[in-house]
């Protein structure tokens, strides 16, 4: 038995060489795991129905938790505010319609709209890495710096609606305060994306 173990000594020169060569790889994986962990809560919010239903790859916004195509052939339009003759504001006011109009009456918030057609800021169907890279890239996020992003999560009134959607709409998995704190921590760490 002793002989057998001796034959498998882990510190043979070849094994040592292998360990030394893969050390940077382990270091990178550890960093990747840390960035995964930092970004995952943000991803879980962005890819929840209250956020992703308007951050769409196509031009038809989605409704409800199952992401059904918006009734009435509603379309994004060039500036994200709907089509001439059928703007979002036809039905969506600056606040939710009164609950007396039924639980599915149109929700509302200031500047209710989709991202514009030339800057779609898609959240749906992206890997965590793709989502993260798009979010922090000023060319794709509407010219926002990382600090602007923190402010956007914390102060934009349409974004804020997502945490106070009314009726029986499902909330994102984190509260607004938790989300803002998480975005701040991610930004403070240099906004690393999963796998980096």
């Amino acid at each position: 038995m002793a002989k057998k173990y001796q034959r498998h000594r882990w510190w043979t020169p070849g094994a040592l060489l292998a360990v030394v060569c893969t050390l940077p790889l382990f270091a990178q994986t550890a960093a990747g795991a840390a960035s995964d962990k930092l970004f995952e809560p943000i991803r879980s919010v962005l890819q929840s129905p209250r956020c992703q239903n308007c951050h769409i790859p196509g031009d038809s916004p989605l409704q409800f938790d199952i992401g059904k195509i918006h009734a009435q052939n509603v379309k994004r339009g060039p500036d994200g505010k709907g089509m001439p003759g059928m703007m979002c504001s036809i039905c969506h006011q600056t606040q939710n319609a009164s609950p007396s109009m039924g639980e599915h009456a149109p929700p509302g918030a200031p500047h209710w709209q989709l991202p514009p057609a030339n800057l779609k800021l898609v959240f749906i169907g992206l890997s965590p890495h793709e989502l993260c890279v798009g979010l922090r890239d000023p060319e794709r996020n509407g010219g926002k710096s990382l600090q602007d992003l923190v402010q956007h999560f914390g102060e934009d009134q349409l974004v804020a609606w997502g945490w106070n959607p009314g009726a029986k709409r499902t909330l994102p998995p984190l509260t607004k305060e938790q989300t803002v704190a998480t975005v701040k921590a991610w930004v403070a760490a240099g906004a690393p994306c999963p796998g980096e």
Partner: peptide
């Protein structure tokens, strides 16, 4: 009312423009 708003925004709408405006 919707058709009037459409023509105020788009003087010469295509069939697709009309469908997009009038589907509601």
């Amino acid at each position: 009312m919707t058709a009037t708003a459409l023509l105020a925004a788009n003087k010469n709408p295509s069939d697709a423009d009309i469908d997009a405006a009038m589907s509601g």
